[in-house]
Design a protein around this nucleic acid. Structure first.
Length: 565
RNA sequence: GCUUCCGUAGUUAAAUGGAUAUAACAGUCCCCUCCUAAGGGACAGUUAUGGGUUCGAUUCCCGUCGGGAGUACCA
């Protein structure tokens, strides 16, 4: 695509730096106004003229050519019309030329980025509260990879803490091996909930749990064996979910991995005089930064969450030499991240500014917050199963002869679930609703997949695959629907970059919805397959370019695009 | 209390400080002898509130109201 803003800036004879002019140029709100606009209001003071007069004057001075065919002044805006036929052509051939690599970039070559996401807890079932971190993290993984970064996906397992002592106590008291084999994590979960119920009346249990956890830490054989069993059961459970969601990790180093890696960082912080003692605990005072102190060592000498996170950040920097390290974790932990980032900064690590907390909103149920302890959760597996079920129902109603029905139903159902976590700004809270996840109409993954399948069906019927080189009639593309669609296709690479640098996959999902809507309008207005071959060939290029962008965009969200549905 | 995030149609959301605030869902009504109706179209309906900055504010600043989250030995 040509850099129209630059081209236009060169044609504006205003007393401003070119870069500043470029920064003011926007796309028009309505294509009736042209394609790009330069608002003249800021010039009013400099030029001592009204914006309307300035726009008139500048418009008269613009030299039109084959790129910029018209400039006109409207209400203080200087509006430009580009050569739309060429814009359409450039957009299509840019997509077709790059194919599935459209949107890729080399901006990240030679750079490493760590993404800490999903981070499951041992013994806890995978519920919808874990969907956001998993879907957003996995999508950012794919987006940064497309931009050429070397990406390290880290599942920072929650595999450390007194709760595992509690699990052992619960297992020894009420454990039922058959039920565990049959129900896996769900059974562990049941034991965990039971423990918390019983613990309320029997504080003795808490003491036992503490001592069992101490035995895990000391490497006691019986304790370790049980702990390993809990881990195996949890992994079997989450592996199934990750496989279905097509989510991958390069490292599973969890909290316990850093158990023996905290002493050196603590000593270093002490040597630098950052740590002070307060109420028996060792803390970093952050009052002058408007934050409560960051606790690193409890009064009983044991470590805390922040201690492990600091050790982990230092270890990761040494191991991966990351350019950035992202933590895809809910905003509830905003303060925690601000604190430990600040501690690392105070410790003199310049890379502390490369640690980024990618915060997202909470998921709650219609009847309130979820709680693993109270057993009030919606399991992700159940949600996926219901979505796949729904997808099957629709297929049998609308397309009963479809091949690979089960596979397509899985792709559509899983897509719908993933999309629900990626469609909106990540910071928004979500109230989980089956009605919404199971609705496959409108702005949803199935709508995008359906539109892709529509494109594909036309391409298949046309019986050819590469349209780029076939002669075609450009007049078949000279219409507003094609223009709007092609502008969206052309903006895809920038959206991929924006999504990466704002840590916001919804920028891509939003664009894909716009693309699908624009395509479906194009589809209704302009029949593709026809006897007029040069017209057909021209429109086929639009269809193929749309299919390419939809498929690529969906893949960056971690969603598959079935050829037929 | 303090810190912080969020308040846009009935609901869920969009909008680098720019032109008439944009979609979807739900509702009512149209469109399959026509490339997949998981689609398209029509109708109706929105910036919490009071100030300020600005030529121009959903966007930036201050206050008020409402909601979420956090706030020392959990993670």
């Amino acid at each position: 695509m040509k850099d129209y803003k630059q081209i236009i800036a060169d044609k504006i004879n205003a007393p401003l730096e070119k870069a500043e002019i470029v920064s003011y140029i926007t796309e028009t709100a309505d294509d009736a106004f042209g394609d790009y606009a330069f608002p003249c209001f800021k010039l009013a003071r400099v030029m001592r003229m009204s914006p309307t007069a300035i726009a008139d004057k500048l418009a008269a001075e613009v030299q039109t050519d084959e790129d910029i065919v018209k400039a006109e002044a409207v209400n203080g805006y200087l509006n430009f019309f580009v050569n739309r036929q060429e814009l359409i052509n450039d957009a299509i051939y840019d997509v077709l030329g790059k194919g599935e690599r459209y949107g890729d970039d080399n901006a990240g070559n030679g750079k490493t980025i760590c993404i800490d996401y999903s981070s499951v807890n041992i013994c806890k079932s995978f519920h919808i509260g874990h969907l956001s971190t998993t879907a957003i993290g996995s999508s950012l993984y794919k987006i940064y990879s497309a931009l050429g970064y070397n990406v390290i996906g880290i599942n920072y397992l929650g595999d450390y803490g007194t709760q595992f002592g509690k699990m052992i106590v619960a297992y020894k008291l009420w454990g039922d091996d058959e039920a565990i084999i049959r129900n896996g994590v769900a059974e562990l979960q049941r034991l965990y909930v039971k423990f918390h119920q019983e613990e309320a009346d029997n504080p003795e249990l808490t003491e036992q749990a503490r001592s069992w956890f101490a035995r895990i830490e000391q490497g006691d054989e019986e304790a370790s064996e049980m702990f390993e069993m809990f881990k195996r059961i949890t992994f079997a459970d989450v592996k199934e979910i990750y496989d279905r969601l097509n989510v991958k990790f390069d490292s599973w180093n969890g909290e316990s991995f850093y158990n023996d890696k905290m002493d050196a960082p603590l000593k270093m912080l002490k040597d630098k005089g950052i740590i002070t003692e307060s109420q028996g605990a060792q803390v970093v005072d952050l009052q002058e930064y408007g934050m409560p102190p960051c606790l690193l060592v409890k009064s009983d000498g044991s470590s805390l969450y922040a201690t492990r996170d600091i050790a982990a950040a230092i270890w990761r920097k040494r191991e991966y030499d990351f350019d950035k390290c992202l933590y895809v974790v809910a905003y509830q932990q905003n303060l925690h991240f601000k604190q430990f980032f600040k501690v690392l900064e105070l410790a003199g690590f310049p890379w502390a500014q490369d640690l980024i907390h990618v915060a997202y909103g909470m998921v709650s149920l219609e009847d309130g917050a979820m709680s693993t302890r109270r057993g009030n959760v919606v399991l992700l597996r159940d949600v996926i199963n219901k979505a796949v079920e729904r997808s099957k129902e629709i297929i049998s109603a609308k397309n009963p002869d479809l091949k690979d029905k089960d596979k397509v139903a899985e792709q559509v159902g899983v897509g719908a679930v993933l999309f629900s976590a990626l469609e909106n700004s990540k910071i928004k809270d979500i109230t989980f609703s089956y009605d919404r996840v199971l609705n496959f109409d409108g702005e949803t993954a199935p709508y995008l997949q359906y539109t892709y399948a529509r494109c594909n069906s036309i391409l298949e019927k046309a019986g050819m695959s590469r349209y780029a080189k076939i002669a075609h009639d450009p007049r078949a593309l000279d219409n507003i629907e094609t223009l709007r669609l092609c502008k969206l296709l052309a903006s895809f690479p920038q959206s991929v970059k924006d999504a990466a640098y704002k840590y916001e996959p919804s920028i891509i999902s939003g664009l894909l919805i716009d693309v699908a809507q624009a395509f479906n309008r194009f589809y209704i207005e302009h029949r593709v397959l026809s006897d007029n071959l040069s017209e057909q060939n021209a429109r086929l290029t639009v269809v193929e370019a749309t299919a390419t962008v939809l498929k690529k965009g969906l893949s960056l969200l971690g969603i598959e695009a079935p050829e037929k549905m």
